[in-house]
Design a binder for these strands. Structure first.
Lengths: 203, 203
DNA sequence: CATGAAGGTTAACACCGTTAAGTGGCCTCG
DNA sequence: CGAGGCCACTTAACGGTGTTAACCTTCATG
């Protein structure tokens, strides 16, 4: 007997099939109506089977989000490479982030605004290496570069990053939740925010 | 027979008692674990009784939030009156908002980040007069004043208000949901954000 | 052929929001 | 005084949720 048949490495095929179905269901019905029973029905197995391949609902959703973050991080890198001016690069990265968040509302919702906000749990963000974490460090590094290059005035890079990040985060949040509010488009709002905020940060 | 015994004006005492208990329960167990059945148990009636005095769960929560917004609006006015310099006033209003949101996380959560985000439903924000709506208009007016006085450079006041608002909103969101993330304190973050953002907006 | 594990199921627990139907007491009117 | 009716509230139920314990098959191996 294999003493440690590491959880959920039994039959990768079905695990992958579940994730695939979960992704589709998630987009079909939205985060609100995504349930284990529905997923089971969709994938053609009984609900309990899901618990053989995943620890719980959160585990499934976490996997979905990590998958998306992979894509996000790739886009971040692409944008960063395509822009030589460090300040412009910083701005573009945040504009991308805002657009990305708004384009994947359900994922963003469940990742950062859910009751059990996936990336806010004590054991997650700093201790475990998640793609969300890597994205954060990636962006912070760009801020550090800007300060080092003298493009941004000397300041605590952590604080600058967080100010930019939370502000962008707020735009996405508003876009997701204030459906009826006649909010300016994410692009316009993001442009306004970043232009003026960065002006304040500039040397 | 009274043809229209306007909904929920039957016995104000019990209605008030329910709201009182709801408020307590809300603070005790948090938004996540607030349920109608728990509330009923706490107040000493059967769950169905609640539906005599309130349309549904959302109705109760809405009432709770409006109660808190009343307090918020009062504080807004107080701060506005206490500061003559219009730019400083604007800044103080947002710092107050951030602090207020962080101090009443569950209310803020349910009001602006809940699945059925109370103030984001089509029939709510713009059509019905809510205290949230009044708060928004109140702040926007201060922005308008700043632009009129030439303290802020000429710009679409709606856009400026929304940029400030969503950014502040993001700080609160981060504070509520990213429990494990080593985030700067709301005050520091708010100060940083507003100082630099307003610098960008200035004439 | 028996053993045992792999892979999946049924049934159940403890919740949830909400509603239809029913019950007991009190007030009013004939 | 008695009957009707309404008021305030309850019981029982519907259809849903995440999750777990216990139970079946099927199949390969000693």
């Amino acid at each position: 007997m294999q003493t440690v048949a590491r959880k959920s490495e039994k039959k990768p095929e079905l695990r992958e099939a579940i994730l695939q179905a979960a992704q589709e269901l998630f987009l079909e019905v939205g985060f609100e109506h995504f349930s284990m029973r529905r997923l089971a029905r969709k994938v053609g197995y009984s609900p309990t089977t899901l618990y053989i391949y995943f620890r719980d609902k959160q585990d499934i959703i976490y996997s979905l989000c990590e998958g998306l973050f992979e894509q996000y991080l790739a886009e971040l890198r692409q944008v960063a490479e395509g822009e030589t001016d460090s300040l412009a690069r910083l701005k573009k990265l945040f504009l991308l982030s805002i657009r990305f968040g708004c384009n994947h509302q359900d994922h963003y919702h469940v990742a950062f605004f859910s009751s059990a906000a996936i990336y806010g749990r004590p054991e997650e963000f700093l201790s475990r290496d998640s793609l969300a974490r890597r994205s954060y460090f990636f962006i912070r590094q760009v801020v550090v570069d800007c300060i080092a290059a003298g493009v941004l005035r000397p300041a605590d890079p952590e604080l600058v990053t967080q100010a930019l990040l939370t502000a962008s985060h707020g735009i996405i949040a508003a876009h997701i939740f204030w459906k009826d509010f006649p909010l300016a488009s994410p692009d316009v709002l993001g442009e306004t925010l970043l232009h003026n905020l960065l002006e304040g940060f500039q040397a």
